[in-house]
Design a protein around this nucleic acid. Structure first.
Lengths: 212, 212
DNA sequence: CTAGGTTTTGAGAGCTACTCTCATTTCATG
DNA sequence: CATGAAATGAGAGTAGCTCTCAAAACCTAG
């Protein structure tokens, strides 16, 4: 998935080294990302230009665009979706769907934050502050959404392209985004996983009007 | 709101004429929009530049940006939110929230399509095809979402800024967007209001796995 | 109906994200 | 080490968008 907190700096699980060329590419990729995060921390997102990023990462501006299609992508790129999907599939088939989602999301968010809490914070912060980043995230999340749709379909036998499944997954995504923004807007106080739990409750049961 | 089908070409209900100056501004605004729709129809969205729009609308490029902050906004600008909010508030206080939403959305979509089905189609088409437009729409929809949050809060006594309310409204928005895209992707076949109904069912009751 | 102040407009310079092309460098392989 | 393939850099070009400033269009008194 793309849970906004999940850090994607390290490569999940790579075979040894497939040659100098490949290793260099990975290094460059990371150099660009690192440079970007540093500059953003110093000057903010908008004030940071591609040229600056290129300079600090010691590559040419062209190269930056060769590695990332847009500036926003440098901050949000995602190599985790397949992992998530696998985990979703690995859940027991008789577990209620909602619970599987809850488990997997929690897991993703948690490991993401453990790996690099700093990045998780910068990222959610950008999500809340920079519209362009938010938009891009939304796009990438909807790709994730389609993936969820596949999983939901497998489990329930519904058509992944049906309106129902699509609306369901998309509303899930929307709720997730909002949860991240909420967290960021409140200065990253409190436990993100706990917020996620509350959000998933709302998504499952609707707003509880009649309360305590 | 911003229901993607709602046409916003005509002014909802304007007091007479407040002077030549104001009337000209309205004309210019419409000229720009008309020019834009025409050009998009001829050449597609990306191929249409601001300069072309300016030329056809017989204004300078600067003026185009004075009227619309971004190119996407020319296609999606929205003057309906306040109306929607009013209608929401006008619903009987004892009507279940979900039903109020359903009614108001249906109404908005329906009148939008009656006013100008052509624009409704172009708009949903762009929504499905052009990422930038989709993003911008999402942004504007989340403003609408906040408005919904206010209404929900008034009705239920919940805090409009609470995570719960925010997640609820945002998931609604997400579902709506997906419905519009679905409609567009399927060549605008079928009744949009009917799709909306199905979507709202999912949002209220979740996915119905155990079926007929 | 004209003078003076306010808005709106146009012209144009400038910035930046992003694309494309082509020559050069860097790695891989036999 | 030679040959081919891939990655890089340099640079030109496009388009969206911002800003500034002077000219034009409108409004309002007198």
């Amino acid at each position: 998935m793309n849970p906004m907190t999940a850090a994607r700096t390290s490569t999940p699980a790579d075979r040894p080294q497939p040659g100098l060329r490949e290793r260099k590419k990975i290094k460059t990729r990371e150099a660009i990302r690192t440079a970007t995060y540093a500059l953003i921390k110093e000057q903010g997102y908008d004030a940071t230009t591609i040229d600056q990023i290129a300079e600090r990462a010691e590559v040419s501006p062209s190269t930056v665009f060769r590695y990332f299609p847009t500036k926003e992508d440098i901050v949000l790129t995602d190599e985790y979706d397949p992992v998530l999907l696998e985990e979703l599939r690995a859940r027991p088939a008789d577990e209620p769907w909602a619970q599987s989602v809850r488990y997997v999301m929690q897991e993703a968010v948690r490991t993401g934050m453990e790996e690099d809490p700093e990045v998780a914070r910068i990222r959610t912060h950008l999500l809340a502050q920079v519209p362009a980043v938010r938009s891009r995230m939304m796009e990438s999340m909807s790709v994730t959404g389609r993936m969820f749709a596949t999983a939901v379909a497998e489990r329930t036998g519904l058509d992944p392209d049906s309106l129902e499944v699509r609306v369901h997954t998309m509303s899930l995504i929307g709720g997730l985004m909002e949860t991240s923004m909420y967290w960021a807007e409140h200065g990253h106080e409190g436990d993100f996983p706990a917020l996620l739990d509350r959000a998933l409750d709302v998504l499952q049961n609707g707003l509880t009007v009649e309360n305590p």
